[in-house]
Structure formats: structure tokens, C-alpha cells
């Protein structure tokens, strides 16, 4: 995880995750996600984010979350649109705590720094390593 003074903290599967705040573009709710039949399970679908088509991912397949169940109450989940070196991606989360500095983020409980590039690659969302097809 990059050094960043502020963490964007969100919850997923009962765990608290942190992303460098500078990587987060927007938090969205209720966006229409178009499922992609036959795609990896972690690819929930595609959504229109301000004119761009962005992959929406469910990272519950991550090793850290292998015991994670559905979100509490099964209520609507939020999407965190974040920047990666390969382009933007939307990460589904159960909830958002907000932008906290390192001290605040650690005070509320254990925080797992999320390696976003590694996570989406491990989930099979971004698989190409070179330009072109």
C-alpha cells in the first residue's frame, strides 16, 4: 500500500479495509450494474460511471475474506470507484467509514491495507499484462 497520510476506510465481510484516500474517485450508491454472463465470479458487472464503462468487483473471494458472508441485512451496498494503474475500478463494499488519518483509522480497530491492483488481479478482473489484445 502506498504511503498516504489519509486512508479511505470501508467495511467488507466484517473486516475494515483502507485505501489511500487519493485513489478514491467517488462513492456511488444504487448504480445499475450490467452482469457479464460467463465472467469470473468477482466481476459483478459493468457500470456507467460518468460516461466511462467501469468494472464492478466483489472482492469476497479474497483470501482475507474467504469466510465472509453476505452483507449484514442484505441491504444495498455501496460502490467505491478508485483509480488503479490499469484504469478505474468499482469495488463493492458493505459500508464506508470515511476518510481518516492514520491515527484515527487505527483507533477504531484493526485496519487491513488493501493492495487494490493485487486484489483485482487475483480476482481475475484485470488479467492482461501488456498493451493490445
Amino acid at each position: 500500500m502506498e504511503q498516504d497520510e489519509h486512508h479511505f476506510v470501508f467495511t467488507l465481510g466484517g473486516r475494515r479495509f483502507g485505501l489511500p484516500a487519493s485513489r478514491v474517485e467517488e462513492v456511488i450508491e444504487g448504480a445499475a450494474v450490467t452482469p457479464v454472463p460467463g465472467a469470473p465470479a468477482a466481476l459483478r458487472g459493468l457500470l456507467n460511471h460518468r460516461g466511462r464503462i467501469v468494472a464492478c468487483t466483489d472482492l469476497r473471494g479474497l483470501p482475507e475474506l474467504h469466510e465472509a458472508g453476505p452483507p449484514p441485512g442484505g441491504g444495498p451496498r455501496v460502490g467505491i470507484v478508485a483509480t488503479t494503474a490499469r484504469g478505474s475500478v468499482c469495488v463493492e463494499a458493505d459500508g464506508v467509514e470515511g476518510v481518516l488519518d492514520a491515527v484515527e483509522a487505527g483507533r477504531a480497530g484493526p485496519l487491513l491495507p488493501l493492495d487494490l491492483e493485487g486484489a483485482v488481479e487475483a480476482a481475475g478482473i484485470f488479467v492482461e499484462t501488456s498493451r493490445g489484445s
Binding site: T34, A39, P40, L43, R86, F126
Partner: peptide, 27 residues
């Protein structure tokens, strides 16, 4: 025809995606 950010694998059945006039994405 619009690029999908990060080029996730869409499988052999789809060549890409587009944003329809109602704003939703279609494959």
C-alpha cells in the same frame, strides 16, 4: 463502442460494451 476501464475479461461471447441512450451499459 467504448473501452472498458482496465479491460476485464468479458469472455468469448462478448466483443465489448456500450452505453445505451438510457445510460445503462449493454454488452
Amino acid at each position: 463502442m467504448q473501452p472498458v476501464e482496465g479491460r476485464p475479461p468479458l469472455g468469448p461471447c462478448f466483443s465489448g460494451a456500450t452505453i445505451m441512450s438510457d445510460g445503462a451499459v449493454a454488452l
